[in-house]
């Protein structure tokens, strides 16, 4: 048995507020299994900082532009090099991206007409990051950021071949596509 004083009219509003707080707190802590799942900022950040795939995060990024912007922000902050977007005045078919300490350019293969060579050149005069870049991130104008694993650098150059129909090439053709290395 519990016995308490009946609150007066002055005390009731405070009691109502407190009741609502307790009830809402209990609701939050219990959760709702039927509620939609959300990707936390921490998980998005972890995804941005790990090469591992996460289908749930990828699905969220595909449908949620705000999540994409946040994700892009994490990638930009964590990038070891930011070659960025191409200069608007470039006349080259696939314009190069030149950032501090790093250039990304594409050369058509002389041997196979449907192949292109993506060349990432690291300036040895700039301070090297603790971890050498291992991923090329390309972000389009709609904040879709795509990650491509990189081979290791050799003589300050990272180089790989892509085909005409590759996603990398399609993205790099657009001068507004931002390139990041991490």
């Amino acid at each position: 048995m519990i016995e308490i004083e009946i609150p007066d009219d002055e005390g009731l509003p405070a009691a109502r507020d407190r009741f609502a707080e307790l009830s809402d707190t209990r609701q939050l802590l219990r959760g709702d299994p039927s509620a939609s799942r959300k990707i936390s900022a921490g998980r998005l950040y972890a995804y941005a900082n790990s090469p591992a795939a996460d289908p749930e995060v990828e699905a969220e990024l595909a449908r949620n532009v705000a999540a994409r912007r946040a994700y892009r922000g994490y990638l930009q902050a964590a990038a070891s090099y930011r070659p960025g977007v191409a200069i608007a005045a470039s006349t080259e078919a696939i314009p190069p991206r030149r950032g501090v300490g790093c250039t990304v350019r594409v050369e058509p293969s002389q041997a196979e007409p449907d192949q292109y060579i993506v060349i990432v050149e690291i300036d040895p005069a700039q301070p090297a990051p603790e971890v050498p870049p291992s991923t090329l991130v390309l972000c389009d104008v709609e904040d879709n950021c795509h990650r491509f694993p990189l081979p290791s650098a050799h003589r300050g150059v990272i180089q790989f071949i892509v085909t005409e129909d590759s996603a990398e090439l399609e993205l790099l053709r657009d001068p507004r596509t931002e390139a990041l290395l991490r």
């Binding site: 939050l28 509620a35 939609s36």
Partner: peptide, 24 residues
């Protein structure tokens, strides 16, 4: 949930936002 009106005032968005942390 089963408890309708008496289940608390947070909507699905807030529950999802908080759940994202609680389930991490």
């Amino acid at each position: 949930t089963d408890d309708g009106l008496l289940d608390g005032g947070a909507d699905g968005q807030m529950l999802a936002d908080f759940g994202a942390l609680a389930d991490a």
